[in-house]
Design a protein around this nucleic acid. Structure first.
Lengths: 203, 203
DNA sequence: GAATATTTGTACCATTTCGCATAAAACTCA
DNA sequence: TGAGTTTTATGCGAAATGGTACAAATATTC
């Protein structure tokens, strides 16, 4: 399919890369405070090109959200590898999350979705829907692993997998918010550890 | 002190009330997307009056955050009444939180701080500081109650009160995000219940 | 009542905002 | 080579933005 060369002048950019650069801008500034000039500068595309390829600012933002959702779900799925213990799975999830949220130790930006999409969720229905769907998918992925854990005796028989999964997500939501609020890596790692202990039968 | 009448034309508005009306605007739209026209319309003050009384948009926003922080802390303190059981305390905290987050069953707006301040936290240091301080104060208030619970035998002796408090907060952070993402009251209440069960010795 | 002090309302300004019109550029296909 | 197609670059424009100058209005104090 790729070999079918399109007619006309070829694009001088890679759409995926551009969305990634745009994501960085939105991540730092939020949707509303990110101007098309900011985006144009970061992507090195002038506005008409941005429009032609991605539509208006909201469309582009939705693309970045969608990309983040996919990336996150991939990482989550990998961390949930069922050949490992549930404890190890959760430890990995939180570790991967903090890798993203802290972004190089200094400039902590938290979760892209929770940090920027929540603010727009009231005014922009499409944003709220992406946010909602993303949170649900994360819950769902963890829930499946929990169900397996119950089957395999890692968790008690009477465990409510769906609910426990939501609590596991809750710890991640908290890490997301706290990272953006400027909490230190150490603090966040401690929360992650205690979250794991707590969910995998504590004390 | 109030009797010391200031010279000059008296204000035709109540500052606290205006801050409350401005909060509503910021709550729905976020800081960046809220225009001075929006704020002016909602408060029924023209821009020069807003500037004279509160400074620029960021100053006003910080005032609304501060007011929310104080209100929330008051509600939290009340809910943490130590003559009740810890379980009852937590149940109340989450119930009060949902009362605020859901705001009349239909238009769920989540937590004002988490829903709007997180987005600005990277670019605006003062916003980040208010957010950080608020989260820490909430954690601290719950922690104190947890320590009492340990003393009184409601929680095991080896309980790490600070960490457990952060987990209790984590459930609230999750409610805050999910409410703004559009989750139903029923879903959120279920999470709150399981959070209580989980923290107050579960299974 | 006059002087003083503060708030209010109108109108304005400079800048930034998003978005697009237009034409040159770069490619494919015949 | 020339027609057709898509992307790029320049630059425009209308609207909205945050912020302010200035004078009228309304109070206190002397």
């Amino acid at each position: 399919m790729k070999s079918e060369k399109k007619q006309g002048r070829p694009r001088a950019f890679d759409a995926k890369a551009v969305i990634g650069q745009a994501r960085e801008v939105f991540w730092d500034r939020g949707f509303s405070a990110a101007s098309l000039d900011n985006l144009s500068a970061a992507t090195k595309l002038n506005r008409p090109s941005l429009y032609g390829a991605f539509g208006d600012k909201e469309d582009l933002y939705l693309d970045t959200l969608e990309g983040y959702r996919e990336d996150s779900l991939d990482i989550l799925s990998e961390a949930l590898n069922p050949t490992l213990t549930l404890r190890e799975n959760l430890t990995r999830i939180y570790a991967e999350a903090l890798k993203i949220y802290l972004h190089g130790e200094t400039a902590a930006r938290g979760c892209f979705l929770i940090g920027t999409a929540t603010a727009e969720a009231i005014q922009h229905d499409r944003v709220r829907e992406v946010l909602r769907r993303s949170l649900n998918e994360f819950d769902g992925a963890i829930k499946e692993r929990m169900e397996l854990a119950v089957e395999q005796g890692e968790l008690p028989d009477n465990t409510d997998a769906a609910t426990l999964a939501k609590l596991a997500s809750a710890v991640m939501h908290s890490l997301a918010v706290r990272a953006r609020a400027g909490d230190t890596r150490g603090t966040l790692e401690a929360i992650a550890r205690s979250g794991v202990d707590f969910i995998c039968g504590r004390l």
